[in-house]
């Protein structure tokens, strides 16, 4: 039995491997489905909902839904695009995102996705939550104003003995990123860089290297997010 199946995304027929998620299948087939909380080799979390697609009439997250034979996926329809934009706008208004002064500007996936969708101003009012900037480690800062609670750091950053470093405390709109300070010694330069890199926004900042790549020469300055797809 072949483990290849067929499905359609926005009417385009694609071939996927059984067991793949919709996001993985789309990627293999050069179809862009925007994601934020999804990250290679990590278990899907489904916190950001940015990859929401319509499958057979129901809205699901593409990062957490496995492909099935004959599946009909709606990705860039007017309705799903608008829903996705609204979700991205929610991510902006629930935090305090000041792109011009952010170390991550140009490397920030949230900013890049907002550009991708040509979002100029959110439809929702800014909530202006009171959040702090926290120095948690000789090498790291947590800028809570920018955290989108995607949990990539929670899932992806582990010490050499396999222990987690990041978690979330509290709940609802008070939810906040925390770092295990008792494991400070286990965080070396390499792990600190990995933590800053896994963060899609500028919430985990490695000290001393914020502007080592000048603005204008950063990832999304050269190529828009998702641009490499569909060519």
């Amino acid at each position: 039995m072949s483990n290849e199946i067929q499905l359609t995304i926005d009417g385009k027929s694609i071939v996927a491997k059984l067991g793949q998620t919709i996001v993985e299948a789309a990627r293999d087939n050069n179809v862009y489905i925007p994601t934020l909380c999804d990250f290679k080799n990590l278990t899907p979390a489904g916190t950001c909902r940015v990859c929401s697609v319509k499958v057979d009439g129901r809205v699901v997250v593409a990062c957490g839904t496995r492909v099935a034979s004959g599946m009909v996926v709606e990705n860039e329809s007017a309705e799903m695009t608008d829903t996705r934009k609204a979700i991205i706008e929610m991510l902006f208004v629930e935090g305090n995102h000041m792109c011009p002064t952010c170390e991550k500007s140009g490397n920030c996936e949230l900013q890049a996705i907002a550009y991708h969708y040509r979002i100029t101003a959110p439809r929702f009012p800014f909530l202006f939550p009171k959040k702090s900037l926290e120095s948690v480690h000789p090498l790291l800062m947590l800028e809570h104003n920018r955290c989108i609670q995607c949990r990539r750091c929670v899932r992806g950053i582990r010490t050499k003995d396999g222990k987690g470093v990041f978690a979330f405390k509290n709940r609802s709109n008070n939810i906040e990123l925390i770092m295990d300070k008792s494991r400070a010694d286990d965080i070396d330069d390499e792990l600190a860089a990995a933590a800053a890199n896994i963060c899609p926004v500028g919430a985990i900042i490695k000290k001393g290297v914020g502007f080592s790549t000048p603005i204008g020469e950063r990832t999304f300055d050269k190529q828009q997010i998702g641009e490499s797809y569909g060519k």
Binding site: C48, V93, E94, Q149, S172, I175
Partner: peptide
Amino acid sequence: EESCGFCIPCRAGNVL
């Protein structure tokens, strides 16, 4: 008060 805060529509939506 009672949202778990895991996903964005619920975390920000209720407050909005």
